[in-house]
Structures are given as C-alpha cells and as structure tokens.
Design a protein around this nucleic acid. Structure first.
Lengths: 132, 132
DNA sequence: TTCAAACCTTCCAGTAACTGGAGATTTGGC
DNA sequence: GCCAAATCTCCAGTTACTGGAAGGTTTGAA
C-alpha cells in the first residue's frame, strides 16, 4: 500500500512516516515510480512506534523496542534482558499514570462545580507519589 | 530554596526549570542577588510537570493540567470539564501501556533464551490493540 | 582578606523529533 | 490530453529541551 493508506492505518501522519524512514525505523520497498510501498508488517511496526512514542518513549527507545519486536528469534537471552528492563520501565510508567489519574480524580470528585476554598487532598498527593 | 535544590527535589535539571520559567510554567520569586527562589509549592508544580512530561503529555497539556491543579477553587465547572477529558486521556494511555506491556511480557515468556523460530502471539498482539 | 570551589546569572548555539510548505512528478478519472 | 489528488524531495521552522561560554555571588578554608 502507499504512504497515505499506511498513514491512515498506523495513525501517523505521512510526514512522520517519511521521517521514520530517514532515521531508519521503518524501511518500505519502493515501486518503479519511486513511491513507497508498505506491507502490513510495516504498518504493524508503525503502529507499534506510534503507541510507544505517545507513551513517552524516545525514538531511541522505540528502536530498542522494535529490535525486540523484530529479533525475537535470535540471541534471545540478550533480547530478553532488554525486554525485562523495558517491562520494568513500563510498569513504572503505569504506576505514575495511575498516580496522576488519582490527582485528577480527586480533583473532579472534590471540587463540586461551585466555589470552594481548596482541596488539601491534592496538595498531599502532589507531595507524595513518584519520587523515583 | 535555590534552583539546585529545586532541581534535586523535582527530578528536573536546573536548565529545564529555567526553561519552564521562560515559557511561564513556574514563576519563582527572585532574591536581591537575582537568584531564583523556589517554595515547596513550586517544587510540587515542577514534580507534577516532570511526571506529566515523562508520560507523554506535551508542555501545552502540562499547562492545562497545571491550571487544573492551580485553579481548583475558581470556575470549577470549566475546570472539572477539562479534568474529565484529561482523565479519559490518561485512562487511554494506561490501557495502551498495558497493551505494550502484554506484548513484551509475551515476548519474555515465549522466547526461552535459546533459538526459536518466531512467536505468533506477538504478531497477533501487534495487529490488535490500540487502533483508537 | 584573599582565593578557589561551587553555586548562580544571561545568552546563544545545537539537538531531537517532528511539521509545514515549495516545487516537481505520477496517478486516475473525465 | 487535462486536471485534481497523491506522491516525491528538499529545506526551513517549531517544540522542548540541552550544552557551553562568560561572568557575578556565596561559602569556607588559609
């Protein structure tokens, strides 16, 4: 498929997809006319990157994640080690998101839509959680 | 406290803290000698931003989140509406992270540290999850 | 008091990861 | 063949930092 379709299916703008090719994240075939040609596998990779980027992983980290994703068959001890580190990282992110969620949820629950002084819960939450 | 201490306590480099002042995210007092002076409240804001940024929220979104965090007492209907939208966004991010986590967990679980052909589970997962 | 180390200041340049736009080419419908 | 839409390349601009120069301030030892 062409880049437009790949963009649609991956949720990434065509511009970004070309950029990802520039930096070597996804390497599509080229048709005779010079147009990029994406396989469904390419689209999966793109979607994978889209997800990881939107969750705060750097492009470098995405590259690592992709290499895990790609090279799952060879040298898997090394792959497994990196995967485990990434798993821990993701768990940490999930915990932090949950913390952030709590802050907002308390905010929504405690400020009743009228004028109120302030919510000590929020202060407390902002002081706690996620020091490391 | 001075910027160095604020940096240490917030988990942000001093450079970044100065940048956040430039763009108006955190406005510390100034001492007579021109040094920035941070309150514990300032540090809470900084930590809040640090968390949100590391979780994939843009600076603009952080600004919104901070305004929720700040203005919890005035015009709270509007605040509440934005807070709810952000809550939904965060829930979505949590779900996506959980998806990513599954991909890696399957990878770790299924590639046993020796040479194996490939894991159809991964293919399947990459095809599913997080289309919206 | 003087000096160095460690802090702080501003400013400017560089990097990462896009993002928008110009200008040329290709495709597909009329 | 014509034209709009999609694609191409290339280059410039934006966002969110990040590093470094050049200099002022504070602290503590000699």
């Amino acid at each position: 498929m062409n880049i437009g379709t790949a963009a649609e299916k991956s949720g990434l703008p065509a511009k970004t997809i070309r950029y990802y090719e520039d930096i070597g994240l996804v390497r599509p075939d080229r048709a005779g006319n010079g147009y990029r040609h994406y396989s469904t596998g390419d689209v999966h990779r793109l979607r994978f990157v889209q997800r990881a980027r939107s969750l705060g992983f750097s492009v470098g980290e995405c590259r690592q994640l992709l290499s895990l994703y790609d090279d799952r068959a060879r040298e898997s001890m090394e792959v497994k080690t990196i995967a485990k580190a990434k798993l821990a990282e993701i768990d940490c992110k999930i915990a932090e998101l949950a913390g952030l969620r709590d802050v907002l949820a308390h905010l929504v629950a405690n400020c009743h839509g009228d004028h109120r002084p302030d919510c000590p819960i929020i202060d407390e939450l902002s002081g706690e959680a996620a020091t490391g």
